[in-house]
Amino acid sequence: MTFSPDLEARFARLLESYPPGRRRSALIPMLMYAQDEVGAVTGEVVEEVARRCGVTPLQVDEVVSYYSMLHRQPQGKYHVQVCTNISCLLRGGDKLYEQASRKLGIGHKETTADGRFSLEEVECIGACSWAPAIQVNYDFHHDMTPEKLDKLLASLEKIQ
């Protein structure tokens, strides 16, 4: 399995970042960056990353099952993550989650039929002082309101 030239370059740099004999250290970053490009941690990705890091596929599976951001199935093109932890909860994060769920017609960790959106109720994303906050893929949206959420979802719906 090969990746894009940019990702291959990144992997080459990664493998040089750790002490000799410590290739396994590249495992989690490699899975994250591969997932970003491939869309999910597929069986093929597991095999390939295992080979490159010098571990067994089972050892990679153990890692994949532990970390909440690694997933085996593709998520929506826009993965909407609504924080409902305390700082967000106190400013209406739970209501935003319900609103997003209603609007998109999906629940926690579900994806719309057209694959455009997926939804996740997430734990603290580190935006407590600008709560309530959500993340769409890796982008933060701070100081959210029901109106801003509607607007955001509508704009993502329109992107070709």
Partner: peptide, 23 residues
């Protein structure tokens, strides 16, 4: 070095395990 979603990895010894490519 990126993590992959786990509060526990903010604990120093769990962080070091994660840095070594483990749970």
């Amino acid at each position: 070095h990126t993590g992959a979603g786990a509060y526990e990895c903010g604990e120093e010894s769990a962080l070091l395990e994660s840095l070594e490519g483990k749970r």
